[in-house]
Every structure is written in structure tokens, then in C-alpha cells.
């Protein structure tokens, strides 16, 4: 790597390296959008891994920051697997069912980026009214 001549060049390195640290700093942030992908055996069998990878890819493509994608175990809704939950500040947590690759990308663009819920894919608005 060449020697830095200006502060601008330092900022460029910082920008490039930020992605590396973003995963950690976002996780520590309190107002992050949290995406949970159900990754128990049934989820994985139904393609949850592909879904998760698509979600991660779309987030990177859209250049979204402050989004944390994590896995979770079985939530007991096996018929609807792969299941994805999106939790963002000021909104009730939303549970999406049968999330394949395309629906995963749609969730990122519509729900996380544009703030619109994908009405046709919602299982339940939140865990509170699941009973």
C-alpha cells in the first residue's frame, strides 16, 4: 500500500475498512434493524441458508447500514419455514413466512429500505398476538 499523502486518503481507507467493522459496531448499536432468520433443522431443510445469503447480499447491494442479520433457532412455525423476523425501532416486530431468495430480497428493499411491510407474506404482526 502506498503512503498516505492527505487526510482524504485516510478517510478512504476508513470507508473501505468500515465494512469490516460495521458488523461489530452495528451489533452494539441500539437502534439497529434486526433481521432474524430461523435456522433450525426445518428452516435449513427449507432453504433458510439460501435465504439468509440472499438477504445479506441484498443489504450489501443496497448499501444499507445499521442492519444486523442473525440466526435463530426453531420458533415452532414449521409449516411456514423459512421464517424471517424483522425488528426495527418504532415498529412492531414482523414475522414473514415462506421466505425464499426472492422474498428475502424483497424484504430488504421494501421493508427495511422503504419502510413498507410485505402484507402478503406476514404471518403475524408480532409474537404478542400469536396466541
Amino acid at each position: 500500500m502506498a503512503k498516505l499523502k492527505t487526510v482524504e486518503e485516510l478517510k478512504k481507507i476508513r470507508q473501505a475498512a468500515l465494512n469490516q467493522l460495521d458488523l461489530r459496531s452495528t451489533a452494539e448499536s441500539e437502534d439497529k434493524v434486526l433481521v432474524r432468520v430461523g435456522m433450525a433443522t426445518c428452516g435449513i431443510a427449507n432453504g433458510a441458508r439460501t435465504t439468509m445469503k440472499a438477504i445479506l447480499d441484498e443489504i450489501a447491494k443496497q448499501g444499507l447500514a445499521n442492519v444486523s442479520v442473525t440466526q435463530t433457532g426453531c420458533i415452532g412455525y414449521c409449516a411456514q419455514e423459512p421464517v424471517v423476523e424483522v425488528v426495527s425501532k418504532g415498529m412492531p416486530s414482523v414475522l414473514y413466512g415462506k421466505v425464499d431468495e426472492n422474498r428475502g430480497r424483497e424484504i430488504v428493499i421494501e421493508h427495511i429500505k422503504n419502510g413498507r411491510l410485505l402484507q402478503n407474506a406476514i404471518i403475524n404482526k408480532s409474537f404478542e398476538n400469536m396466541e
Binding site: V7, L10, R14, A16, A17, L18, Q20, L21, R24
Partner: peptide, 21 residues
Amino acid sequence: GFINPEDINEYIAADGYQALA
């Protein structure tokens, strides 16, 4: 416990050398 101490890029990403600049 937050960055890799052997990678200057991680330090820079954590606002490193900005104060010097």
C-alpha cells in the same frame, strides 16, 4: 476486545489516526 490489534485497517475503521490528522 473489539478490533484486531494486528490490522491497522481495523484501527482506522474505528476512527484511528483521525485525531492525528
